[in-house]
Design a binder for these strands. Sequence first.
DNA 1: AATGAATGAGAGTTCATTCAT
DNA 2: GATGAATGAACTCTCATTCAT
Lengths: 214, 214, 214, 214
Amino acid sequence: MSAISHRQKHKEELRRVILAAARDIFVRQGYESFSMRKLAEKIEYSPGSVYLHFKNKEELFECLVEDSFARLLKTLTDLRNGQEPTSPVEELKKGMRAYVEFGLRNPNDYRFAFMLRPPVKKREYKVHEAFDVLRFLVKRCVEQRCFRAVDVETTAQALWASVHGITSLLIQRPAFPWVARKELMAQVICTTVDGLAATPMANGSTRRASCKHP
Amino acid sequence: MSAISHRQKHKEELRRVILAAARDIFVRQGYESFSMRKLAEKIEYSPGSVYLHFKNKEELFECLVEDSFARLLKTLTDLRNGQEPTSPVEELKKGMRAYVEFGLRNPNDYRFAFMLRPPVKKREYKVHEAFDVLRFLVKRCVEQRCFRAVDVETTAQALWASVHGITSLLIQRPAFPWVARKELMAQVICTTVDGLAATPMANGSTRRASCKHP
Amino acid sequence: MSAISHRQKHKEELRRVILAAARDIFVRQGYESFSMRKLAEKIEYSPGSVYLHFKNKEELFECLVEDSFARLLKTLTDLRNGQEPTSPVEELKKGMRAYVEFGLRNPNDYRFAFMLRPPVKKREYKVHEAFDVLRFLVKRCVEQRCFRAVDVETTAQALWASVHGITSLLIQRPAFPWVARKELMAQVICTTVDGLAATPMANGSTRRASCKHP
Amino acid sequence: MSAISHRQKHKEELRRVILAAARDIFVRQGYESFSMRKLAEKIEYSPGSVYLHFKNKEELFECLVEDSFARLLKTLTDLRNGQEPTSPVEELKKGMRAYVEFGLRNPNDYRFAFMLRPPVKKREYKVHEAFDVLRFLVKRCVEQRCFRAVDVETTAQALWASVHGITSLLIQRPAFPWVARKELMAQVICTTVDGLAATPMANGSTRRASCKHP
DNA sequence: AATGAATGAGAGTTCATTCAT
DNA sequence: GATGAATGAACTCTCATTCAT
């Protein structure tokens, strides 16, 4: 009993070790130059041992992607739980910020989820789950008339484009002379969201104020 | 002399042929499964011959990237030439539309330029050249007070994020149930740009009107 | 005691299960693609478990060969028991028919016994046992003057060649446009045996008649 | 010019070397334990070099089979050319002897052609070509009334069985206490062929005489 | 300028077998 | 008695690259 559970534990632990090492190689050296052998060497096991945990390279990769998506999803859904609700627009902004911040804090995850390879069919639904969160937030803004009568789907997709754009660029082009991340993120989110507001601001300064702590 | 120039011509021609074939394989079969051998086979030369024109695989790849950037740049700079100038804001929008449309019309070029691999140092400046165009357009909007007194650099970067976001997502995730590309592009561009306008709109309808032909 | 014998039973049973599964894989997937792992998977035991019953792959294979030989031998020796004896020549023909029919009905056994791999030394005696039966049948024909004064050993070997030839060809080359198996077997057996008869036939028709029901 | 032809020569030579080495390994160590690496090592080239001459292991194997068949066929067809014709029956016997002798003199070839692996579809026709020779010889015997009115196809197949049987057994079971090969071959051929003769012999001795030098 | 032969390295994967538990 | 983890060696095959010709 204890022996079995110990083994079980060890197995799970090793699986995690493998995934972590693989993620590291994938990200550090690029998908192309990842190899099962390098992975084995890194974890100091024989090449065959990896196959005790993953059927093949492809399955391992898919696992990494799934994990990354799961973490992104958890981050997004955790937002709603355990917090006093504010306005729908603020919630939306918070969601967008959470998205970008997740990407910047976990660039490997974001890479696996959105940047590394064209998605295979069976993985597609993961994207939908993440997008659903955003769509919901937008929908509420429109329904509660915080937004003009924009098309929910189009708007949600446009907002996704914006947050994905800034996230992926910041991750992939760290050498570019970006302005401060905070300002940039605020600019992206406020500009895109505020433009959708139902009540046009009377002047620009107000608008900018609302972006102070995005 | 003529013989020499003929040879020169032939050499350049062959170089072009190699690049075209390489691009084709990269795009059709994916980066991972590209190989110098397949390339040689495709152009019906020996593997060694490729090395007479490119030092190695890496250099060849860099050439492809450069070409793609060059085409993007040409598209953007061509905009300004040979057209009666309208308002700075319209020019900016036009530039952004041109950027997205270039990506959608030449997904391979866009992939090479921005999506395929983390950029090496010496390629970095290419991105700057492209970004300079955008910065210039934004700057003019600000200088001519079409925009509020936003920070030019921050704004330009935010706008770049938006157009890159929509372009890369549309390219990489063709299976996603996107709304019509036109609407989406319009939404992205208008939402982000109009929110920057100096004169706040009195109501939403006006704003929407300005998006009719983005 | 009972517990021990139960264990004993179980052990023998498992051994049989392993052999059966192994034979099945060998035959269905070919010798080359047999593996201890596949075997273990098929019987739903761990790879290591197989080694509790067989020292290694080689020994397991030898067991299969032995079993196949045993079945062939049993088929041949069963012939003599429980049947009214006819003429020695008929008995010989019956033996040859039994040999071929065994091979055609149990191609796997025949393959293991004679076709799969060059025999190792220690397995050699099995062939002798089977051949002994044939030699005995031939010897009786000669001793009882049903046959001309041919050399028993030479004749027996020649007859073996004939029956092995037709059996192995039919097994290994099922795609060849064979005539009806019955006719072919009859032809092989009659032609080779009748030619040895002590009393030359007066005409062909008689001879053919004797082949009607070979 | 000379350079090219030298290269060509060298290439052909190397191809022959590879085939010879491969044949040797296949036969000495068995199909299962043949490997491209062992082959490369044997010829003292890198593993990759073999692939410059053969697409893969399968193709190499097929080449060996084809070559072996070609040699067998050449042996059989050479028989008819350049020799004074004797009786059809003698020709048939000569053909059968040639078949067996080819197998015994070139056991590797015979193994590749008939014993090593179940034939693939596209190789099937090779067998037909070889069999055609035998069928022709039998047919002539029947047409010229040297044989009784036996069915040509059935008879040819039965004769094939006999010669294949003795050839394959002698090759595969060298440890068996065979009688002298000559006697055995004679016995097999005479017994099977003489039994088909149109004019029944008056006594056994005559028949045996005809077998003295089969 | 172009070739084709060659290589060493390395890819993913499977294997028979062992052994602590 | 049975397991599952582990390994080292082997497999087929592809690769980028070099170099004599």
